[in-house]
Every structure is written in C-alpha cells, then in structure tokens.
Amino acid sequence: MTLNTELIWTVVSFVLTLCIFSYLFGDNPLFRFATGLLIGVSAGYFAVIIIYQVLLPRLVVPLLQGSFPALIPLFLSGLLLTKLSPRLAKLGNLPMAYLVGVGAAIAIGGSLLGTLFTQVEGAINIFAPVASAGMSQKWILILEGGFLLLGTIAALVYFNFGGKEDKGNSVQRSPMVRFFSAIGQLFIAITLGAVFAGVMTSTITALIERSNFLLIAIKTFFGIG
C-alpha cells in the first residue's frame, strides 16, 4: 500500500464519515467538529469560487480590457458595500433595490409563465389523449384524468378559506367546500407521504453509499480484496 494522495483523502473521508456517524450516540464534539469543518470549508471554497470565477472573469478582466460597461457593476458593487457603514447605508439602497426588483420580476414572471399557466394547461390537457385513444383505453384515461382533476381541485379547495358566519358567531364553510376540502386533505396527505417515502429512500441510499465507502476503505486499509 503506497502513500498517495488518494489514500490520504480516503483516510480523511473515512474519519470524517465516522465523526458524522457518531451522532448515533447523540451530539458530541466529533460530530460538531465534522459539521463545523464542512461549513467552514464550504464557505472558504465559495469565496474562492466567487473570486476566481466571478470577479476576475466578469469584472476585473473586462475592466483591464477597457470595457466601460463593466464600470456599471463596479459602481453598483461599490454602493452595495456601503451597506457595511450605518451612515452610508442609504447609498446601498440603489443596487439593493435593483437586485430585489429585478429578482422579484423575474421570479413572478417565471412562476406565471412557467408554473401557473403551464400547470393549468396541463390539467386541461389531461383528457386530450382520450380523443385519440381506443375504446378500452378511453375509460382508463378518463378515470385517470378525472382522478387527477379531482385531486387538483380538491387540493385547491382545501386552501380556500372562505365561509359564512352562522348564528352562533361561528364561521363555517359550505358543505360542498367541506366535502372537497376533505378530499383535498387526503390528496395532500398522500403527497406528503410520498415525499416522506422519498426522503427515506434518499437517506437510505446515502447510507448505503457511505457504508459502501467505509467497507471499501477498510478493505483498502487492510489490503483485503
């Protein structure tokens, strides 16, 4: 067994994995050390990435090449740094307003065009294949489409908080709304269950991957296999 870089990183990964697994016995210094190291390394690596892949190629290099439009982000970045000073913080409102405004506009536009309209269109087109399907498939597609439509409507009804005030000063939804909201609650519960199953699948997969790594590392350390 030669001492090379790969082996060193294998040892480091092995030790850190065991530190993370030590959380099995509760919070302990080894676990805190590993998580702290992860956070610190991630932050430092992010700073290096920002410098070498953002500031240098997109601000410094254009400025050195005489690109005057690069002065605009430089000016806005300088104003953004004034947020560090309470006295000059007002100057940073301009780039901050630009970022928030543009970000909100892009997010809202994307949600409308990319999610809302397309999802509504998708819910409408559920029954589109029915027209071209055969007789045997038609009922299946209609049943499937109806089921999806019911789930979509019921989930939307569940989040509708409209109601009327009765004589006892108690607000109650109409019976129809209560019926669909109960169905929507069922669909939402199924969705959350599916998400929980997905979380379990993901974590078990990660556990298997790390366990496989530990096993390979042990075999490597002892020269087995």
């Binding site: 397309t118 999802q119 998708g122 599916a194 998400v195 997905g198 979380v199 699948t201 993901s202």
Partner: peptide, 17 residues
C-alpha cells in the same frame, strides 16, 4: 433529482415541460 423531491417534480413531467 433526489427521490425526496421527485413527487414535487412530477406535475412538470405530466405537463410536458
């Protein structure tokens, strides 16, 4: 995508996006 987020991505596949 990770298995834990797949149910949330299913509508986008169903809509053809």
């Amino acid at each position: 995508i990770s298995a834990q987020s797949a149910p949330l991505l299913q509508p986008y596949y169903a809509s053809g996006q």
